[in-house]
């Protein structure tokens, strides 16, 4: 398959990390998480940055839509982000799907 920016996991991870850098401001007692949604309608993986601060309403900021709809690809993107950011990841709508590399459940909820 020809490599384009859409199937280059490093490129996608880079964009997400740039945006995390832009939107992340450390606050006292704040909780941050990266939400990854399996969008079954658009066949994409949607990334959001959720911010929970005391006495503030939770915010959910869109980070990126990954349109290369393959779990191996998603796994590479997530692994790349995890090398730099230690935020909790929340995976939604993945059902009983497992990571291709180690067959662990993607979402344990």
């Amino acid at each position: 398959m020809e490599a384009t920016h859409l199937n280059n996991s490093d490129f996608e991870a880079q964009i997400i990390k740039q945006r995390l850098k832009l939107y992340f401001t450390p606050y006292i007692k704040a909780r941050y998480e990266i939400l990854v949604v399996n969008d079954i309608f658009a066949h994409s993986y949607n990334f959001f940055f959720n911010i929970y601060r005391p006495l503030k309403l939770p915010h959910s900021i869109p980070l990126r839509r990954i349109t290369f709809y393959r779990l191996e690809f998603l796994e590479n993107v997530v692994a790349n982000i995890r090398t730099e950011y230690k935020f909790s990841f929340v995976f939604r709508n993945f059902g009983k799907q497992r990571w291709p590399s180690n067959f662990t459940l993607i979402s344990k909820q």
């Binding site: 929970y52 006495l55 309403l57 939770p58 915010h59 959910s60 900021i61 869109p62």
Partner: peptide
């Protein structure tokens, strides 16, 4: 808006 942690704020697109 009420200060209720269940309420999620999202930006428009």
């Amino acid at each position: 808006l009420p200060h209720d942690q269940r309420l999620l704020i999202v930006p428009p697109r």
